[in-house]
Every structure is written in structure tokens, then in C-alpha cells.
Design a protein around this nucleic acid. Structure first.
Length: 274
DNA sequence: ATGGCGCGAGAATCGCGA
């Protein structure tokens, strides 16, 4: 029941991606797959379709936006949707949309024990612009995640926090640092927030690109960015020491970014030597 | 400097993504 292959993939709508998702599951055969941006209500996940391939599902959805899931064929125990301390999204003061009466919890984290590992699938808030309230939400959310994950780490159980962090940890994780000046995803506070997660006891497993020198996991749909390899590494797998010590290899499945109807993210796949 | 693509909701554009 051990996790031999762990993967994470922002699919940008499970509904729109279902044929490719099922095909990818069959071809890549992960033991555990973390999904982000399912864009489905919790009960609307196609659990029967993935069950036919041997996977149990834990989905935390909200409908139109966000949504995270865990698919596992090595057990799926003690499922937790969301986490204590999640600050929620309070809206943009002075923005066009009205402020919410109270912060609204969004479906951005689900965790469960799979094959002896506490696995998290997370979708970190985008941040939109450094001067926006959404950026503050992003930083607060990441800090709350650090606190919650630290509690898992304190139990001594193996932990893997995987997902779309919407942060490129280093300049080498973007195609051109100059192109991102003034943008989110690369600011020092965002990078510090990810570094704090690492400092809590996690290792950032940098996957190998299947082509070219850049370990990018996301490429904008527009302007041929993928074909020019103008991307970013924002999908991360942060794992505790015992998990990191068992890593045999990791790669980015850029083939899944090709062809008709891809997500704008590619899956990150990590293999373990158990 | 801007938009460039794609998705969902819902019926025309819009909010959002990074």
C-alpha cells in the first residue's frame, strides 16, 4: 500500500479535461494524484469514472471556481477538507465587487492519509496584483497553511504538500525574471512564504523537464508561450524528510500540455524507491 | 501599451487565471 508514484496536476476544469484526465491516469498510473482547479461542486466529481480505473476520490469543491481533489489507489483515510486557520477571502476594498460581510472559505485544500503519507492537494490563491487585497489573502493563506502543515509534521508522520502554489520559488523558475517585475508569483514575500514552509521541515522536489533546461509546469495558453517554453514552475511538491529520502526521480509530463484541449499546467510526477 | 486563450455561467458578455 505504499506510495510509489505521486503526482500533482492543475487540470483547469475536470469536466473539460475528463477524457484527458482518464487517459493520463491509465498511461501514467500514479498511486496518488493531487488535482487542482476542478471547478466542480463537491458532489459533482466523476468519482465512478476514476473508480473504474481503481482510484478512490476525496474532492473538496465549490462549483465555478477553485476545487481540489485527491485520487488514490493506495488508501484514502482521515480525509480533511479545508484546514483550521484558513483566513478566507474577504473581497477587494475599493474594488468593483462589494466586500463580503465575512471572509468566505474557498475550496483550496484537501488532505488525507494515502499509503502511510499525509498528502495535501492545495490551490494557493493567485494574488492578482501585489497591491491588491487578494495578494494579502494569498500571504495570509500560505502562513495559515504553514501552521496547519507544521501540526502534521509534529506528529512525525510522512507529509507531502502538493499543488499549484502560484509562486515561482526562484528566478530560474520563470522564463524571464525581467518580465515579471511588479507581478505576483515572484515577489519576496511570496517566496518567503514558500521558504517558511520549507523551513518548517519540507523539501522542494524540483522535477526534471522532459525537454529543454527549464523545469516549468505552467505555460500561458496565449501567444505560443508553450512552444517557446516561456513558462513558470509554480506547481510544487514539498515533502517531509522521510519522503524526500525515498525519492527516486521526478519529472514534468510536458506531453500532457500538448495536443488538443490541454490544461495550461503539466503534471508533476514523483517516483519513490520503497 | 495591449491582447493574445480557455473555462464556467448562462445566454451576451463577464470574472478569473498568472
Amino acid at each position: 500500500m505504499a506510495v510509489v508514484r505521486l503526482a500533482t496536476w492543475n487540470v483547469n476544469s475536470v469536466k473539460a479535461r475528463l477524457p484527458r484526465l482518464l487517459e493520463w491516469l491509465e498511461q501514467s498510473a500514479p498511486d496518488v494524484l493531487c488535482l487542482q482547479e476542478t471547478k466542480l461542486a463537491t458532489d459533482a466529481f466523476p468519482a465512478e469514472e476514476v473508480k473504474a480505473l481503481g482510484y478512490d476520490t476525496a474532492h473538496h469543491g465549490e462549483g465555478r471556481w477553485n476545487g481540489v481533489a485527491l485520487l488514490s489507489r493506495v488508501g484514502l483515510d482521515d480525509v480533511r477538507r479545508g484546514f483550521a486557520g484558513d483566513p478566507g477571502w474577504g473581497g477587494e476594498p475599493g474594488g468593483e465587487e462589494p466586500l463580503f460581510e465575512e471572509p468566505k472559505l474557498e475550496a483550496r485544500a484537501v488532505s488525507a492519509v494515502c499509503g502511510g503519507v499525509r498528502v495535501w492537494s492545495v490551490y494557493v490563491p493567485n494574488g492578482r496584483a501585489p497591491e491588491s487585497a487578494h495578494y494579502g489573502y494569498k500571504l495570509n493563506w500560505l502562513e495559515a497553511l504553514r501552521v496547519a502543515v507544521s501540526q502534521d509534521l509534529a506528529t512525525g508522520e510522512p507529509v507531502a504538500v502538493c499543488g499549484d502554489f502560484n509562486v515561482a520559488p526562484a528566478d530560474s523558475d520563470v522564463f524571464d525574471p525581467a518580465a515579471f517585475i511588479g507581478s505576483t508569483h515572484v515577489t519576496k514575500p511570496e517566496r518567503d512564504a514558500v521558504a517558511a514552509l520549507v523551513a518548517a521541515g519540507l523539501s522542494d522536489i524540483v522535477p526534471k523537464p522532459m525537454k529543454g533546461p527549464n523545469p516549468f509546469t505552467y505555460w500561458d495558453y496565449r501567444a505560443g508561450m508553450f512552444h517557446q517554453d516561456k513558462g513558470m514552475r509554480i506547481d510544487l511538491a514539498l515533502v517531509s524528510a522521510a519522503v524526500a529520502g525515498a525519492v527516486k526521480g521526478a519529472y514534468i509530463d510536458r506531453e500532457a500540455r500538448k495536443g488538443k484541449g490541454p490544461s495550461d499546467h503539466a503534471p508533476v510526477v514523483i517516483d519513490f524507491d520503497i
